[in-house]
Design a protein around this nucleic acid. Structure first.
Length: 665
DNA sequence: GTAGGGTTAG
């Protein structure tokens, strides 16, 4: 709910024209970026020199006594920080405190979580014109950690266009968006900033890249961003290689990860434990334990000691590679190193074993873990419940769910879903309802899985209308519907004579932009015809005629001729014919007799009769007689003229006259 | 006087 609102908010609050300024940042403002670039891209000797000089400058004042004014400012800062009514202290010390002093206080408020004070101070600084670039960047950083839209509001409130494209401020707001998982809006804003004249630096790009790590489609986006670097004169640094490697790893691109490691070595950066961790993680996708072992050897040879993350990741590789004996050994190593104090590595192994069909071995890890008193938040139980369900041991799964409910007060969505699933599979209606109530009470927002589990269960319990309601709910919450489940629901709704509900499910599926299987059109068509929802049936036919079988089209055509909306009869016939379907005589007969019984539709009858010969159709003799008998209603002359065309058309063409010769005898 | 990186079970 919050996401779309926020995204919309961004667009509303950042109309493009605000960014279309052509002002450029002053040269002094881009200096920090320049010095960073020097720091990161030059040889170690130079960078040492650059780093050392500010350090000596900073130490210099210590030998000299501080000026009176400096000491006054210092004490003013701490007075405001400690004051119970800081606004009045501020008012009193207004003349002493410089902008940078206020910034110090602002950051202090941010670090100690005094949000209200931070906002008040920021407002005060704005009102008194004591505001700088640092004020904005710090304020956005701290506010954004709690409230992104407020941070965006602050960013948008910056009156000066050139300040708005200050790289520090831009990095700060972009980082806020990334940290809140709003990569799309982040990229949008970034593009606007660039158009406004922002000169992004290495940190800007790294911030954006960090946003690509855990999103789907993050890899191509990252590659695109990396492609922009040369154009902006930016060299990748060690941190950026770390980010990029993490992206490769989370997308299973191990070859690309290897290439980046190679490239960074060539550029003179030596990989650290983070770089190696990501490379190792990239091997976990295919469970490439051979490469993982080689990597561990290389890493140790250059003196890096594997840490908890590294060893846990290695465990993941072994599990994925199906090396369960070595996984158990490694788990023991983690235990003795003190790296298995929480349930995570046990969970990984249990899950891997259960997915490999080794339920008993998973169970033994689970019991082992419980016996050791490993700290658990309930995930281990949840994995075990899933494992039991996977092996269709629903009674045990249900028992363990009960157990989890009493042991763990707090349940997250995944745990709730797992228990819900267990109760559904075991057919425990009461418990299912209890879980739903629990979710409601804890204000847990159901996800795709929750809906899927419930719908499947309701269908199983023949609560088809409830399943339908839940599907509507699922759809309205923006979740993708699954075809197989919908198809089953459509079938059952058809059976219980709920054709409009069935059609609504069909439409939700159809308009969620996916290609759906051919049989579904046919299935819904039968339901609609049986339910006499012929106008809806017509829509299905019109859009999918090519995918529907001839007998079903025929069935539809006849049903429509008999009781479909008379004004649509000609359209239906044209659509059927246009799809390549050969309309049979019976359909024309029914249509025409209906027209005759409703003289006010005579125009439609004339249109139909005029249309038929051109498509190779003629009326049969009984229909012809019927028309002639009623021709006074249409004008005898006109009817005679039209029917004469039917007569001509009824004669076989010259070519086919010779056919009987071949066919007979 | 401001901004940036790695692993994790369901």
């Amino acid at each position: 709910m919050e996401t779309p609102l926020l995204l919309l908010g961004l667009e509303l609050r950042c109309p493009p024209h605000l960014f279309n300024t052509h002002s450029r940042p002053s040269s002094s403002l881009s200096l920090p970026a320049l010095s960073l670039r020097i720091l990161t891209s030059t040889a170690a000797t130079i960078s040492t020199a650059v780093v050392e000089s500010p350090a000596t400058v900073a130490e210099a004042p210590r030998s000299k006594p501080h000026s009176n004014f400096y000491l006054k400012r210092k004490s003013a800062i701490s007075e405001v920080q400690r004051s119970s009514d800081f606004l009045s202290s501020l008012h009193r010390l207004e003349r002493v405190l410089k902008v940078q002093d206020l910034n110090v206080i602002l950051r202090d408020f941010g670090i100690s979580g005094r949000w209200q004070d931070l906002i008040q101070l920021f407002d005060w600084m704005q009102q008194h014109g004591k505001i700088s670039v640092s004020t904005y960047s710090s304020c956005i950083k701290f506010v954004g950690a709690k409230n992104v839209s407020k941070a965006l509001e602050i960013y948008q409130s910056i009156p000066d266009e050139s300040t708005k494209i200050n790289v520090y401020i831009c990095n700060s707001i972009l980082s806020c968006l990334v940290k809140n998982g709003k990569l799309d809006s982040c990229i949008k804003l970034f593009d606007q900033m660039k158009r406004g004249g922002l000169k992004p630096d290495v940190i800007t790009y790294n911030t954006l890249l960090a946003g690509c790590i855990k999103v789907k489609n993050g890899y191509p986006k990252a590659i695109e961003l990396i492609g922009e670097l040369p154009h902006n004169g930016i060299q990748m640094d060690s941190v950026m290689y770390g980010t990029v490697l993490a992206i490769c790893a989370s997308n299973g691109r191990c070859e690309e990860a290897e290439n980046f490691i190679q490239q960074m070595k060539v550029e003179g950066h030596s990989p650290n434990i983070y770089h190696y961790s990501s490379l190792l993680n990239s091997y976990s996708w295919k469970g490439d334990y051979k490469k993982a072992d080689e990597l561990m050897t290389e890493m140790k040879s250059i003196g890096l000691v594997p840490n908890k993350v590294m060893m846990t990741t290695l465990l993941k590789v072994y599990i994925k590679g199906g090396l369960f004996d070595r996984s158990r050994e490694l788990l023991s190593e983690l235990e003795s190193a003190g790296y298995a104090e929480n349930e995570m590595p046990y969970c990984m192994l249990m899950d891997g074993l259960s997915k490999a069909g080794k339920l008993e071995e998973a169970r033994s890890i689970f019991d082992d873990m419980k016996g050791k008193g490993v700290k658990s938040d309930g995930y281990a139980n949840s994995i075990m419940i899933s494992a039991l369900c996977r092996s269709k041991r629903f009674e045990e799964a249900k028992e363990l769910s009960r157990d989890s409910e009493t042991t763990y007060e707090k349940c997250d969505l995944v745990m709730l879903n797992t228990m819900l699933c267990a109760y559904c599979r075991a057919g425990e209606m009461e418990s299912v309802m209890r879980m739903m109530k629990k979710m409601d009470e804890q204000a847990v927002i159901p996800d795709y899985n929750t809906f899927h589990i419930l719908i499947k269960y309701f269908i199983k319990e023949k609560l088809h209308l409830l399943a339908y309601q839940t599907t509507l709910d699922m759809h309205s919450k923006g979740h993708r519907l699954e075809e197989e489940l919908c198809s089953s629901l459509i079938y059952h709704l058809g059976k219980i004579r709920a054709p409009s509900e069935a059609f609504s499910v069909y439409n939700m599926l159809r308009y969620s932009k996916r290609t759906i299987c051919k049989e579904l059109h046919e299935k819904i068509l039968h339901i609609l015809i049986r339910g006499n929802l012929l106008k809806d049936a017509y829509i299905v036919v019109k859009d999918n005629a090519k995918m529907i079988s001839q007998p079903t089209l025929k069935k539809f055509g006849r049903a429509f001729m008999i009781s479909g909306n008379i004004n649509l009869v000609n359209d239906v016939l044209k659509v059927l014919h246009g799809s390549g379907h050969k309309i049979d005589q019976v359909q024309f007969e029914i249509a025409i007799s209906r027209y005759i019984s409703q003289p006010d539709k005579k125009e439609l009858l004339l249109q139909l009769l005029q249309w038929m010969p051109g498509q190779g159709y003629i009326v049969d003799s009984s229909t012809r007689n019927l028309i002639l008998k009623n021709s006074h209603m249409f004008g005898r002359l006109l009817i005679a003229e039209i029917l004469s065309k039917h007569h001509v058309a009824s004669r076989p063409p010259i070519k086919s006259r010779s056919e009987p010769k071949f066919r007979s005898t």
